[in-house]
Design a protein around this nucleic acid. Structure first.
Length: 439
RNA sequence: CGGGCCAUAGCGCAGCCUGGUAGCGCGUCCGUCUGGGGGGCGGGAGGUCACAGGUUCGAAUCCUGUUGGCCCGACCA
């Protein structure tokens, strides 16, 4: 992509409405624009990142055997009355009337809809287990939206729902999602820690939050040091296997958010417990027959009896992840994208546009990288070097390649690693090698 | 929903207290000198001062109301 043709309205100064770092950088890097409190337009740079995250999530869900569907944003109030939540949900639910005065709502979540789909089509245990997921925008009319996309009213989520014939098999489904979550966050270049979560009063017995560790995170968390460094060799998971043991590996560590932290539950004699901060980016939840029962989503079991199906739900906050990733990966100059979700791998910076030698080498390199399965953003604009460098740091691509008269004279060009700040001076051929090896 | 604060050019702000017809920095446009960390010089464009009403000869400024936004708290992915 040529920067001269890319719409990325960067801001030099901090917008006054933003307080936390991810919000500030998303606005300054031209990723989003606020439309109303907690509601955002996604500009090209933000959209690309959001899409990358979404795609990784989707791929892992499919690998784990889930089926993708797409449920609408607007839902009929009818099924919510069935589950009893139309009254219970309160003011967070945005209620709308259509021209015929029918009650609609902008979906804050989808248990009712998916249960309705399930009960219409699935009647027998033979069709189970089943996992349906979708990726869709939701709306919750929060009391107080804040922190940019981390706590918006409109947000993109992946929701999966599992259906099983009995408790034991539903735990298996839960474990599959647990391991899929470990995988998908890893594929985003993130360290996500599963933590036991409260399930509330309603009979659920199993729930985990997945938390990204970030100094600027919203809540305090307590984690065993070993879990932070826990590198499991799970490159390939066979979801057909019994995963309980693998799940146990993770859950055997102590990890808790502030609300659930209880020092007496952990023997900290080796001082291995770390207090840090984190951001919740996923939540998995086993809730049994909570919805299937009132909504009569029943199946025939092996005995021929009709029983409410066992369910679980599994969410990932995709739009929130964009903010969370920035919270976990930035410095005072801007964003530092993990290479897995970076909009591009390389940022070629022409330090003197208009200079024949600079233009030629940049263009040659640009074409080479594009032809070698890597992605590259080429800053071919006519701005001053300083402005380009500052903008490159703000946008935060993993590698910057600096081409200027100085380098051309010495035939050595700067390759800067955004994360470490390290600069290698490489010949043109060494640069090509680096790109090929790194692809 | 309780408490605090804000709204003036695309962005960040001053002016308001003490009313007299709007200014600074950045950005933007033209020219020029520049060119390795958000340049220099010269010239230009851009604002019904959030909206509505009131006081006044006169309102960005004083008064009332409305709308929108931000922060702290309670709540949540």
């Amino acid at each position: 992509m040529l920067l001269s043709r890319f719409f990325v309205p960067v801001l030099k100064e901090n917008p006054k409405e933003a307080e936390i770092i991810s919000h500030i950088y998303m606005l300054r890097a031209g990723m989003i624009q606020q439309s109303a409190s907690g509601i955002y337009s996604w500009l090209p740079l933000g959209k690309i990142v959001l899409e990358k995250i979404t795609e990784i999530c989707r791929r892992e869900m499919l690998k784990a055997g889930a089926n993708e569907i797409l449920m609408p944003t607007l839902q009929s109030a009818e099924i919510w009355k069935e589950s009893g939540r139309y009254e219970d949900y309160g003011k967070e639910m945005l209620r709308i009337k259509d021209r015929n005065n029918r009650n609609l709502l902008y979906g804050p979540t989808n248990e009712e809809l998916v249960t309705e789909i399930f009960r219409t089509h699935v009647k027998s245990y033979k069709e189970l287990p089943l996992n349906l997921f979708h990726i869709q925008w939701k709306f919750r009319d929060e009391l107080r939206p804040r922190f940019g996309v981390m706590r918006g009213r409109e947000f993109l989520m992946k929701d999966a729902y599992s259906f099983d014939v009995d408790y034991n098999s539903s735990i298996k489904s839960y474990n599959i999602m647990f391991m899929a979550y470990i995988q998908l966050f890893k594929k985003m270049g993130l360290k996500a820690i599963p933590m036991k979560a409260d399930t509330g009063p309603i009979g659920g017995d199993l729930s985990h939050e997945f938390i990204i560790i970030a100094d600027t995170g919203e809540s305090e968390v307590y984690v065993e040091r070993e879990l932070l460094n826990f590198k499991d060799s799970l490159t390939n998971i066979n979801y057909e296997d019994d995963l309980q043991e693998k799940v146990n590996k993770f859950t055997s560590f102590y990890a808790a958010t502030e609300e659930k932290h209880d020092a007496s539950n952990f023997d900290n004699k080796n001082n291995t417990l770390i207090k840090t901060r984190g951001i919740e980016v996923g939540h998995i939840f086993h809730f049994g027959q909570k919805y299937s029962s009132p909504m009569r989503a029943t199946i025939s079991d092996r005995q021929g009896d009709n029983i409410p199906v066992f369910m679980g739900s599994y969410g990932v906050g995709l739009s929130r992840l964009v903010g969370a990733i920035i919270e976990a990966n930035h410095d005072q100059n801007g964003i530092i994208w993990p290479s897995e979700i970076s909009p591009w791998d390389y940022n070629i910076i022409n330090l003197k546009s208009g200079d024949n030698d600079c233009d030629n080498i940049c263009l040659k390199l640009y074409n080479f990288i594009n032809n070698n399965t890597s992605n590259v953003l080429y800053d071919n604009t006519d701005e001053r070097a300083g402005a380009k460098l500052a903008r490159a740091d703000l946008i935060g691509l993993p590698y910057q390649i600096l081409i200027g008269p100085k380098g051309i004279k010495e035939e050595l060009y700067d390759l800067k690693c955004r994360k470490s700040g390290e600069i290698s001076r490489l010949s043109y051929n060494e640069l090509l090698n680096f790109v090929q090896m790194n692809a």
